[in-house]
Design a protein around this nucleic acid. Sequence first.
DNA 1: TAAATAATACCGAACGTTCGGTCTGTTTGT
DNA 2: ACAAACAGACCGAACGTTCGGTATTATTTA
Lengths: 217, 217
Amino acid sequence: MNLKIDLYLYRPNGRFMNKTRVYILQTSLLLFLQKSYKEVTMKEIVEKTGLSKGAFYHYFSSKEELFKEIVMLFFSMGNIDYSKFPNDSLYNFYQQYLTHTTASFIQLNELVGSNDESTLSFNFFFIMFEAMNRFPEFLAIEQEDYDQAHMAWCEIIDRAMVNGEIKTESKKEDVADLFLFSTDGSFIRFLNNKHYSGNYSDYLKTAFETIYNNIKT
Amino acid sequence: MNLKIDLYLYRPNGRFMNKTRVYILQTSLLLFLQKSYKEVTMKEIVEKTGLSKGAFYHYFSSKEELFKEIVMLFFSMGNIDYSKFPNDSLYNFYQQYLTHTTASFIQLNELVGSNDESTLSFNFFFIMFEAMNRFPEFLAIEQEDYDQAHMAWCEIIDRAMVNGEIKTESKKEDVADLFLFSTDGSFIRFLNNKHYSGNYSDYLKTAFETIYNNIKT
DNA sequence: TAAATAATACCGAACGTTCGGTCTGTTTGT
DNA sequence: ACAAACAGACCGAACGTTCGGTATTATTTA
């Protein structure tokens, strides 16, 4: 296995991390995906890792530090490089977005080793939300990510308008927002429909298609 | 002041609730809007209410019971009666939806007495999410609410298709989802842009208009 | 209508447990 | 031999909850 996450785990700042440290991160990560920050206890972390308190505090200065690193890891995983996206058509752009999203999902599932995709996603979303609620620094990162995405969408939509792929009276910013709102919205819906059926990608795909079909020429 | 919430507070099941009990609910509700379940302590609740531990446990069997009642209260507040919505046009329907949403916001703010709309909303969302994560019963309620909303949107969209208000090749279910995804999505966006500008209603209004303008005849 | 009784409202010290974190000592690798 | 890696007993603070008790109010009795 050669997961993208390994890169972030072992080299968060370009330099390699200690093996045990990575092991603690990877192991306790699963705990934070199951419950909130306060609910995950040091006792659990120590038990799950099979190490001692002393070992833990040898590598981490606090529980909070561990949590923050895990969240940063998740942010890194979710980061998208739009410069590598196709810029010939809006259609290809959003298809690539769908592909990328699906891949991220699979990767997260492989990492966790769970087969309950929606429960995992629920907790994943929860942990990110909790992080932003607790530490404003993550809120800033999230905003930056959104701005990047928004710009990328605006660019391709503008191009599609110019070259006649789509035709709409709406502003490109608003159309971009619509795509992005659909991303978040369908995700939320997916989470809350966990006991129903379908997966996130299907929800999102349908939403994208609905938008696209109503603006294409 | 004659807030809708008072109704739920004093008569959750048709019968009146004890005054002090309501006072405890109303007071500690503000605490749960500031931090997660685990982070709100009994000490804080007791201090904020000015009552004693004994008094609290005279009215509530546990902290969890209190939390659940607060969440139920929020669910009750957010519940929308679509049968009272205009059914003559999709345009009027979504305008009414916007009006209703704005009103709910104002009400929540009056209840809390806060002037920081976005922080409040953030926490509001968080508490609901936490509740659904912690107690599956709330997830079921949320799903029911969504199904109701989905049906209402489908109905009005179908009508608008038939009478020629809108014209689209998309299925009515997909268009309905698009409106609903925008609702959730713009809310998420609003939350994460808390330090920027604008309010939720503006986000949502723009999204609705964008959809509508691209499907209207 | 006053005294007696019952029911409710409320108090705060104390309980057992668990929390995140520290400290001292031992093992391991070089 | 010496530092890094690890073990786990231990710490004080904080946690939710309990409990014995006292005011206050409502109801019954004489």
